[in-house]
Simulated assay, not measured.
Amino acid sequence: MPISTSSLFAAPFGRQDRSAAWQVAAVVLGTLVLAASSHAEVPMVPVPITLQTLAVTLIGALYGWRLGAVTILAWLGQGALGFPVLAGGASGLHHFVGATGGYLLAFPIAGALTGWLVERGWNAGRIGLAFLAMLFGNMVCLALGAAWLAILIGGSQAIMLGVVPFLLGGLLKSALGAAVLAVLSRGPLRRRA
């Protein structure tokens, strides 16, 4: 039976046949990528602009929903334990209950959703669907982040400060994420998948 183009690049790092050592190495690499994305920051109040949502959705897309969520949770755990891996090198539990708490808690859900969609064919074989998978991941972050922020500062302020400034960036990061998947699908990852 021929393999469809859309299944050729369905979460190559998240394949079930990978060894435990390989998966642990993937988690370590993923947490390093997430930490690096946190340091690409434009300070804003109450929530900074970073490359975290791009990294979160790409980790989900490349690792699949299970390994992606585990990787994102490991990174958040590092931040909670005091490692400087959150936005701008921040760390500590207080970030999980402050203005950024909803966004941080949304990240594993967004990564898992993106990975789940990619595993179902919303990948580089269908670039429009790959873009939508990334966009849905970004929307989850904005929705859950704004919901938490609304508890702290009110609904209209949460929308104006926690959603509106991030809409264009979410579109651009989704397009960039889909493009990265398309490039990687033609490279060495595709041949090994």
Results as ranks from 00 to 15, higher is better:
G14K: 11
G30L: 00
A25S: 10
R126N: 14
L132C: 10
S156W: 12
G170T: 06
A69L: 09
R190E: 11
A179Q: 06
V163T: 14
G121V: 06
L93A: 15
S174M: 08
Q52A: 11
Q16R: 14
F131T: 08
I127M: 12
A182E: 01
E41A: 11
V97A: 13
L149P: 11
G155C: 00
A124V: 12
S7G: 00
D17N: 09
A133G: 05
V70R: 07
N123A: 15
A175F: 11
L161A: 14
G162Y: 05
M44N: 04
A20I: 15
N138M: 09
S91I: 05
T53C: 10
I3S: 14
A69W: 00
L81E: 05
V27N: 08
R190D: 05
P108S: 03
A99F: 13
I3L: 15
L132S: 07
S37I: 07
T5C: 07
G177C: 07
S174V: 09
V118I: 13
M160P: 00
L104R: 03
P2R: 12
A90F: 02
G169W: 12
A112T: 12
L86A: 00
S7N: 08
V45W: 13
A106F: 07
S185F: 08
L184Q: 03
P2T: 15
A25L: 08
P2H: 14
A40K: 00
M139D: 07
S7D: 12
P43W: 10
W148S: 09
A25C: 10
Q157N: 13
D17P: 05
G154S: 02
W22I: 12
A182H: 08
T5K: 14
G82M: 02
G30Y: 04
P46R: 00
A61S: 12
V140E: 01
V42L: 15
L168C: 06
A21C: 03
L142T: 09
A36T: 01
Q157M: 01
G170D: 15
A143F: 12
